[in-house]
Nucleic acid binder design. Structure first.
Lengths: 206, 206
DNA sequence: AATTTACTCCTGTTTTTACAGGATTTTATA
DNA sequence: TATAAAATCCTGTAAAAACAGGAGTAAATT
């Protein structure tokens, strides 16, 4: 039984690279590719592959969202996240949304095949380096923010003062001050400059 | 005369994609690839290609630096920047350092070949979208910072206060204050939070 | 029922920024 | 060698953020 594989990635060269790596593999059938989430979903309405290799940075909606959507509509499809090394923080989000595993874009043929094979068997697979960074970010590195904190963080980064944020969110400015205090503490930042810097690097700020 | 092409990219799938796209092209000879700057430079000591396709996000030093280094040592080599769409701000830096042009990673075969052809003829080439975003960021969007301002900006983002920055750079704290004032003005930011956010998005903060 | 979590609000003090409006001295560069 | 650009330093005021150390409420979880 051949594994029917589909790719979603907005970089043509990556698609071409994967196609080339999977070319002439007896166990793999290439069923197509999409360069954005919308055309991926359109494809799935007509035909469902066994495995989707899915990039995170898509032009319309993020791979993380797309992953959830696809798994909801088509639970049988196995999804392997596909991304670059410095997107640590997204790995766990992808897995939370139902991905079977994670491949780095500098993975070679054997890793790629292994990932697809494992996904087909309903087992999870992860690039070695991805697994490492997941462990690294697991405990201490990545702070866990509440919804409100994320909101406040976003507004801080956009340059609003506490009072302005308070007005915007219909809360007191002392409350904003508290959120700010907690954000600084959670990130281990000395001030808002370091906070915004760290938060941006960890993907909290859009 | 065949164009001898070399690739530097840390993503195996991209390398494989380009290899596949250039495969069986009569005018192209694939001479090898490197996955980091160091092994690229090592390769060049033995053999010089005509064209290097060079990624920006390399693990050791950035493609921007590598570009300058290669052009200094081997001025005859033509370099084509290679990157993803959302790295606008690096395009012009790459060109400043001697690159002949710029290709986006979602470029197709024809664009790739055109780029190599133009580079061989000592003409500059740019992906359509890359050219657009270069124009967009050209005038108003991207502020021009002095060396000292970049230094101060970096230290601000890392969370130091004016006084600490002053001590670090052996200047008065009022001087730091002036630099900060100019940075805010140049970026059109209301405060340091917005400043760090904008500066990060535009690639000023490492 | 007790506990935790998230969210809210408070007072007061100190530190740091932001803003206004200057000036002087190097250092490139035309 | 003018001229411009960059970097330095200054005073004073107002605004905002950082710090310390709290507390109350509502909702979810154990």
């Amino acid at each position: 039984m051949k594994a029917r594989v589909f790719i979603v990635d907005d970089h043509y060269m990556v698609i071409e690279g994967i196609r080339s790596l999977l070319n002439n593999e007896p166990g793999i059938e290439w069923v197509g590719h999409a360069m954005n989430a919308a055309s991926c979903l359109a494809f799935l309405q007509k035909s469902q592959p066994d495995v989707i290799l899915m990039d995170i940075g898509l032009p319309d909606i993020s791979g993380i969202e797309l992953c959830r959507e696809v798994k909801t509509k088509y639970p049988a499809i196995h999804i392997l996240g596909l991304s670059t090394f410095n997107q640590k923080s997204y790995i766990s989000k992808m897995l939370e949304n139902g991905a079977s595993g994670y491949l780095l874009k500098n993975a070679g043929r054997s890793e790629l095949l292994k990932g697809i094979e494992m996904a087909m068997q309903n087992k999870s697979f992860m690039s070695h380096e991805a697994a490492l960074s997941l462990r690294k970010t697991g405990d201490d590195n990545q702070p866990v923010l509440t919804h409100r904190e994320k909101e406040v963080l976003q507004l801080i980064a956009s340059g609003l003062t506490n009072q302005e944020i308070a007005d915007r969110l219909f809360i007191g400015n002392t409350t904003v001050e508290t959120h700010r205090k907690n954000l600084l503490q959670k990130f281990g930042a000395r001030n808002v400059a370091a906070l915004v810097n760290l938060a941006t690097k960890n993907g909290f700020i859009v």
